[in-house]
Design a protein around this nucleic acid. Sequence first.
RNA 1: GGUCCCGUAGUAGAAUGGAUACUACGUAAGUCUCCGGAACUUAAGAUACAGGUUCGAUUCCUGUCGGGACCA
Length: 597
Amino acid sequence: MTRLQEEVKRFLEIYSNQKGIEQQPFPPIQVQIPPADMPGHFTLVLFPLLPKLKAKPDELGKDLANHLMHVGLPIDTWEVVKGFLNLRLTTLFWMEQLDAMWQDSTVSKAPAQEGPTVIMEFPSPNTNKPLHLGHLRNIFLGTSLARILEASGYRVVHTNLYNDRGTNISKSMAAWLNSSDRLTPESSGMKGDHLVGHYYVQFAEALKQQISEAKAAGLDEDQASKMVPLAKQVEELTLAWEANDADVRQVWETMNSWFYQGAEQTFARLGVYFDRVYKESEVYDLGRQTVSRGLEMGVFYEKPDGSVWINLEDIGLDHKLVLRSNGTTVYMTQDLALAYQKLADFGQASFFDEVGNEQDYHFKVLFEILRRLGLAQPEGLYHLSYGMVELPSGKMKSREGTVVDADDLLEELKEMARAKADEQGRLNHLPRTEQERVWESIGQSALRYFMLRVDPKKRMVFNPEESIDFQGDTGPFIQYIHARCASLLRNAEGMQFHPAAVKTLDYVPDEMELNIIRKMQEFPTAIHQAAKEYSPSIIAHFVYELASAYSAFYHGHPVLAESQQNARQFRLSLTRAVQLHLNRALHLLGMEAVQQM
RNA sequence: GGUCCCGUAGUAGAAUGGAUACUACGUAAGUCUCCGGAACUUAAGAUACAGGUUCGAUUCCUGUCGGGACCA
């Protein structure tokens, strides 16, 4: 519809000249899709122009419509209603659109290999416990956004940062060292990341016990949590790690390797991959170099005690510490070092970090420092801040075991999909491995769609019993419509029917059929908007509306059973186009479309 | 003390400052001689409160109340 916009602009020039109004920047004309019960296909909002042009809406609308028709836009009818110019386009135009969709690159799957580079980083887990529901939201958002950005012409590099050192992993280590069994994945039969998490929880329980004993002995909360033997042990382990103690490093390496094995298994199940994996332990030392560079540039300053700071008062923040007086780095320092490392690895690029909104403040500071160090342009930095996932009982806490484990949940969803599929019995003829794939896809669709249809920054409450639905505005519904289309097209093949070029058909589609074409025609716009706003939910809404429109059409319109040949041809073509669009949109949401379910 | 995010039917969500606020679940009533009923049709039900800007405010601004996060 760029043509429409150009012609509107040209009209405004002519019109204002005629009226003797000086050329002035007009507000860009808004082209919108009118509400469903309005007659037009597109609507132009005239209000903003009226004062400047000193015109009445009816006259302006009439002149504009006449101009557009005069220059040959495919306008069938038009009318002005309350300052909106509604345009109805010709049937031929829509038929041509449908034919053009086959060639459209947005429907084909090849992502661009060129274009500006975006370095995405997610989900950046700690290595002391397995992935949970919050990581799943992170991963679903990240995978989907990566695909949406690729579809919009970016080259996306996937990176992940393992927070593999520090207090938390020391806790798991302490519990393992103190345990009598010292289990391994082999001896316990547990998935590695779950085993590490098991010790983490064990530590938390033991620590709690010691603290309450200490409190009973008269210490206050603060003292107790520092003085207790386990707390000291963790501190010692962390120091020993930093001092490169061989024994501690050995245990650390081993337990982390268990974690990686487990986490990688989950990533594989979710179809996540990384072009480059970073570890906090590896960028740890780089931090200090970063600090000295910042000092040379005058971005940081040193206090008499040797600690290094940055003054951010001029942007309404305070002074932030970047290096402690004892020379150890802080979280911020490591993120700065990581930025240097990424630039060295990938060259000039945008940073796109996906981290929960509890770290909004941290990222605000981090990005400001990166700018001052000249590492990035403001527009090249983006923090996708997403809301926490909570349970009806409140915030999830791994320490207390009140988390929804990612692996458990995925398994549960697959089981739900299996139960439903068994009830239908349509997959029975497939080999077991194929059935499993379908169950997995449907189960994941349910969860991915549930999380992606929501604005990323909103906090969400996940109720394990009630949240996942397979009916209505859900992933399985979209999959269902897709599978139906696929099934129809399979049957058509058996009957020797084929989709055809529709513009040559002697057939006039009805409103429902036209609506489906109109919907599909919005797809490229939806992708661009989703990329611009970093919001997969736009794709989710698009795909639901398309599926829903097709479903309504399907009930009243025979396709293969249609006796009139032109109608049949048209509907088959329409079905094929819908199937492609659903498939492509599901892909952008990180889902795999199934052929039957 | 400071900063940030969020308040839309019973529930979960949608709406670049645009038309009568759009869906789904649930509830109620219907549809099936037919290509996949995980479907379709219909009904009831909501913008926290008070101001302001605007031709027009769920959206922007100010304040109040409520929920959440972070910094010190």
